[in-house]
């Protein structure tokens, strides 16, 4: 077995070269390069988990914003509905008062018109009496040949008119 047979001749060379090569591996590769490689991997892991956290936070913020939006939307909706209701009530009240005023105006106009109609019909009646008196005197004069007095004719007409 050369491992044992050659040990006296080769142990120093084996140990020397092993320490030299492993020393190179440890100091140059292990200490010099591996931390950088591992650092890159760690930085990447940190970045990934950081990005994931940021995404999660953004999701939470979005949910919050949506909830906020919903409550504000509901508030605005109820405020708008209250506004509409008030406006409706106001409008109804206003139209009521205007209607009342218009009713009063109309009643006044109707009253005035009725008074005018009454006056006009009185005047017309008076005119009809005069015309009827004239007509009655004419008829009396033509039929009886008697000149009826104005007063007699008037009384007769009045009586006739009163009887309808």
């Amino acid at each position: 077995m050369p491992q044992i047979a050659q040990i006296a001749d080769t142990y120093s060379s084996q140990i020397f070269w092993l320490l030299l090569t492993f020393g190179f591996v440890f100091f140059v590769i292990g200490l010099g390069m591996v931390p950088k490689v591992q650092g890159t991997a760690d930085a990447r892991d940190a970045k990934i988990s950081g990005d994931l956290d940021a995404a999660k936070a953004a999701f939470a913020r979005a949910d919050e914003a949506e909830a906020d939006y919903r409550t504000r939307d509901a508030q605005n909706r109820s405020a708008a509905q209250a506004l509409i209701a008030r406006a409706k009530a106001d409008a109804a009240k206003a139209s009521e008062t205007r209607l009342a005023a218009a009713d009063a105006d109309i009643a006044q106009v109707i009253g005035a018109a009725e008074a005018r109609i009454a006056a006009a019909s009185n005047a017309a009646m008076a005119q009809i009496e005069t015309v009827a008196v004239d007509a009655a005197r004419d008829m009396v004069a033509r039929i009886a040949g008697v000149e009826a007095s104005d007063e007699a004719a008037r009384n007769a007409v009045k009586a006739a008119l009163a009887h309808g």
């Binding site: 120093s12 084996q14 020397f16 070269w17």
Partner: peptide, 11 residues
């Protein structure tokens, strides 16, 4: 002795 051997070559 630190002869450069075939073993050292593979190291």
């Amino acid at each position: 002795n630190i002869a450069f051997t075939n073993s050292a070559l593979y190291m």
